[in-house]
Amino acid sequence: MDRKEAHEKFKKFLKDGENRITPERFEVLDYAIDFEGHFGADELFIRMKNKKSNVSRATVYNTLELLAQCGLLSKRNFGENKFRYESNVGKVNHDHLICTNCGAIIEFEETKIQKIVEEFSQKLGFTPTGYSFNVFGKCNNPNCKRNKNG
């Protein structure tokens, strides 16, 4: 899916849900699509403000929720008691390794995991719309704060 298709999908989602279709919501969509990696609502808001956007913090928060409901963003909880988002536009399904010390997030793709999800879904009479597989642990990066603190 490209940017134009994302805009069309979001417009239809907003219309079907009887939500207002505003330029500000599409500005949030564009910034979210362009954000590399995982981001929080405040990070996106600050990036937008630094680029002279006039979109309010409330609009960013509310629009991110709508984009997640629409399926254009994935809303993730990586164990830090706050939600992070990532764009689904132009991306393949992937999984995450999360360091509980330094917060590093390593993305990886593994077809075996996808096959297990499909197999168990079929076996249990379930139609998945997506999944999130996160492995928590400690990274081996020498710059990890674990290694600095002993």
Rank of each mutant, 00 (worst) to 15 (best):
M1G: 15
M1R: 11
D2A: 02
R3G: 05
K4C: 03
A6T: 04
A6Y: 00
E8S: 12
K9R: 12
F10K: 00
K12D: 04
F13S: 09
L14C: 06
L14P: 00
K15A: 14
E18M: 13
N19R: 11
I21F: 02
T22E: 12
P23R: 11
E27N: 05
E27S: 15
V28Y: 00
V28H: 04
V28D: 01
L29H: 03
L29D: 04
A32L: 03
D34F: 07
G37S: 01
G37M: 03
A41N: 01
L44R: 02
R47I: 03
R47C: 02
R47V: 04
M48A: 01
K49C: 01
K49D: 05
K51R: 11
S53D: 03
S56L: 06
R57E: 09
A58K: 14
V60F: 04
V60M: 08
N62G: 10
E65A: 09
A68C: 03
Q69R: 06
Q69C: 07
C70E: 01
C70F: 01
L72Q: 02
L73Y: 00
L73M: 03
S74I: 09
R76F: 07
R76W: 02
N77G: 15
N77A: 13
F78L: 15
E80R: 15
E80F: 15
K82V: 10
F83E: 03
F83Q: 04
F83M: 13
R84G: 01
Y85Q: 02
Y85H: 01
Y85F: 09
Y85N: 01
E86I: 05
E86D: 06
G90N: 08
V92F: 06
H96N: 03
I98T: 12
T100G: 13
N101I: 07
N101P: 14
N101V: 14
C102L: 02
G103Y: 04
G103Q: 12
E107V: 15
E109G: 11
E109K: 14
E109Q: 12
E110T: 10
K112A: 14
I116R: 04
V117A: 10
F120I: 10
S121H: 08
K123D: 05
L124V: 14
G125R: 14
T127P: 08
G130P: 05
Y131G: 15
S132P: 03
F133D: 12
N134Q: 08
F136I: 11
K138D: 15
N140F: 11
N141E: 12
N141S: 06
P142H: 08
P142G: 06
N143H: 09
N143V: 13
C144N: 10
R146S: 13
R146F: 12
G150T: 05
